[in-house]
Design a protein around this nucleic acid. Sequence first.
RNA 1: GCCCCCAUCGUCUAGGGGACCAGGACGUAGCCCUUUCAAGGCUAAGACCGGAGUUCGAAUCUCCGUGGGGGCACCA
Length: 497
Amino acid sequence: MTLTKPARVRFAPSPTGRLHLGGARTALYDYLIARQSGGQFVLRIEDTDRKRFLPGAEQEFMDALHWLGLQWDEGPDIGGPYGPYRQSERKEIYLQYAQQLVESGHAYPCFCTPERLEKLRSEQQARKQQPRYDGHCRNIPPEEAAARVAAGEPHVIRFKMPRDGSVTCHDLIRGDITYRNDQLDDSILVKSDGWALYHLAAMVDDHLMKITHVLRGAEWLPTFPLHVHVYRAFGWEQPEWVHLSLFLKPSGKGKMSKRDAAELMKDGRSVYITDLRGLGYIPEAVNNWAALMGWSYDDHTEFFTLADLVEKFDIRRLNPSPAAINFSKLDHFNGLHIRHLDQEDLLRRVKPFFEQAGYHPDDATLRKMMPILQPRLKTLDDAPVVAGFFFREEVEPDPQRLVPKKVTPPQALEAAKRLYEVLSALPEVTLESGEQPVRALAEEMGLKAGALFGILREAVTGQAVSPPIFETMEIIGKETVLKRLQHAIEILETMQN
RNA sequence: GCCCCCAUCGUCUAGGGGACCAGGACGUAGCCCUUUCAAGGCUAAGACCGGAGUUCGAAUCUCCGUGGGGGCACCA
């Protein structure tokens, strides 16, 4: 716990895509700060760009956040004292504040056409200059500009950036950053269609919603001075600005593109939260993993539950340098958190993955499987591949593997038959009742125990690797074990000819 | 081209002048355990980008390079 005053933080996604790792980590930190300080976590939808709006995206974001366990206190679905929480429902508010800026001389209407701007930009680029607005409409007398606006002439509202001096902006993890004003642009605040841009809308909302800490990606650093200028123009007190380090692709070369993201999916990995869920990752692991990219607690503690994070997260320990995404570490955390799950909990989570793979698991069997399954799972969707044979009607042993190295087919057949005899003589097959007789059999036949276990494993599971075979047989039951062994014997018999 | 950020093992990081011949984790390799596979335990290899300063002393502070990254929209 590092914050003593209640913090109001907001996660403000744009419904143009899906929640990805970077956003999830920002939301996580937001959540942690709000919870540990007894403040509020606000969800705000930044949907002022009507062209890029994606139907369903808002719901997708909320689903993903819910899955991660990051419940918000105020948002479009539940309302709150500072609503509405959808920017598309706040259009008039932004216009009103834009007008205020025009009247105070901090902004001005610009009548330049997109065509002129495009031409200007390409000329500047040709001259290897920094592309920016040339101030064409900056000095139109206010009365004249107002008249043109009143006459309905198409226009945007631009911020009137000071031409000299500099701004020093304070970032919580980087300290002061100074920008020269003459390097800054007269950015557009309101588009010609009347919709405010981020530079205005987000500042107005953060102020109106009494946000105390703005956490956002480091890609906002270049426009940081603009935002500080906007705050100053309004005479508002600034929030604490926190620019989170960027996530780089696993190679460390650049940030993730849509294309890279699609490419990742081929390896069973993804930066999209709802994909991670489908891939068998659990939210505990995703949160733990994401929390540690850009933040650390000390020099050795790495396992954290959400509750641990609420308690231990310290905004002052954020790291400014970019981090390459490391999926093998996610696998590690996933295994770790799966092993920490209560067995009933694991059962509930793993069941859908069996069903999805086409099995019809019953809870009683599942429950018996948990102890042997739990330490073997990296992801939940590993479950049907390592343990699907529990629910298969029949298992198809591989004839080659039924005959281990240094064992002849006739020996293997003999072994299978004797195994059948030994096991059928048992009241039931368990580790306690079965292991010694089987080992004795191996010795009697002059086979290595491992070879005999191998034959048994292949016959019963149809796999070369499986959970320990006696525990497995105990769960499957003597009857099924014998049936499968009989099937293996038949396969071995046909091999003899 | 311009502006901004960053810089410790392959990766995520601890380190905020002497406690560092730099600690942890993932991954990799080996060993132990072992009926296979995991899990678990142990061990190993592996880093302070370079150069100047400041200082008795620098991974830690300053500057300059270099490298990497981000941004330069009527997107967010």
